[in-house]
């Protein structure tokens, strides 16, 4: 084994693919451990989301004079996706330091940790997703075949979140302030991202909100869920972010891979 490989990060990711079994098992086991002593377990997530979107949805649709049948499903999808995205991002900054015991004692590829985090949140998302479909059907919306387009959207989003997680994990391991910074800015991002509303609800600033990457993260899935394919520029932005994001992250991971064990 080479000790000073130039592509240590890429080699690490290649090794992580062989550890897919470990990633899957650990993610499931983490979810299980978290809800160990509760009766409803992860269904609490589902209930919380359902309650939140019902309450907020009906009050706000009245407050803003919007038709509940269109607004509540929009809000539900927005809330579920925001939980998924912000959950991953907030946890990613402490990704490596949380797993310090494993990193310092076992010779495992480091890339399994972002993958495990993503998978755990995908499992949570799977618990929340039914709420949207129930809400939409109860309010008389039709779920069309276009909704299947949410799946490739989810794959694009997940691949983007994966590099973002690794990137934030790396700088979060080195600079501990990133953790607090992220916890502080994520609620602010929630307000300036189209979580409670659609970008086209905004009369003047629609083009501004598309500068926020979270708008793209949410809309690539919400468009098909609400019955129309996502605009092409949303898909293009995702692809561009994939290329740029992975390039920067891999460059950084290659450079810093050997140092991470000393940081945690």
């Amino acid at each position: 084994m080479l000790s000073n490989s130039k592509f240590a990060g890429i080699a690490d990711i290649a090794q992580a693919f062989q550890c897919a079994r470990i990633v899957a098992f650990m993610a499931l086991s983490d979810v299980k451990a978290r809800y160990k002593r509760s009766v409803l377990g992860p269904l609490w997530l589902t209930l919380g989301t359902a309650g939140g979107s019902a309450g907020l949805g009906f009050i706000w649709s009245e407050l803003f004079h919007i038709d509940a049948a269109t607004f509540v499903p929009t809000l539900t999808a927005g809330l579920i996706l925001w939980q998924f995205i912000s959950g991953i991002i907030t946890e990613s900054t402490v990704l490596f330091s949380r797993q310090a015991a494993i990193i310092r004692n076992l010779n495992l590829p480091l890339a399994i940790h972002p993958a495990q985090l993503l998978l755990r949140h995908l499992i949570n998302l799977a618990h929340n997703a039914p709420v949207f479909f129930v809400v939409a059907l109860v309010l008389g919306n039709h779920i069309t075949l276009t909704a299947w387009l949410a799946l490739p959207g989810l794959i694009l989003l997940s691949l983007n979140l994966l590099w973002l997680t690794l990137f934030l994990g790396l700088i979060g391991a080195r600079f501990r302030d990133i953790e607090y910074l992220t916890t502080m800015v994520m609620p602010l991002f929630m307000l300036v991202s189209p979580v409670f509303y659609r970008p086209n609800y905004l009369p003047f600033s629609e083009h501004i909100i598309w500068f926020n990457p979270f708008s793209h993260f949410i809309e690539i899935i919400r468009y098909p869920l609400l019955g129309s394919p996502p605009p092409l520029f949303v898909v293009e932005t995702h692809l561009a972010m994939l290329v740029v994001g992975w390039s920067v992250t891999l460059w950084l991971f290659n450079r810093q891979h050997h140092r991470i064990a000393f940081w945690v």
């Binding site: 080479l2 000790s3 310092r104 000393f262």
Partner: peptide, 16 residues
């Protein structure tokens, strides 16, 4: 830990 491959050396070579 260096023997185990957890820590990487700044110079030199480890063969395992």
């Amino acid at each position: 830990r260096t023997m185990a491959g957890v820590y990487y050396p700044i110079s030199g070579k480890v063969v395992r």
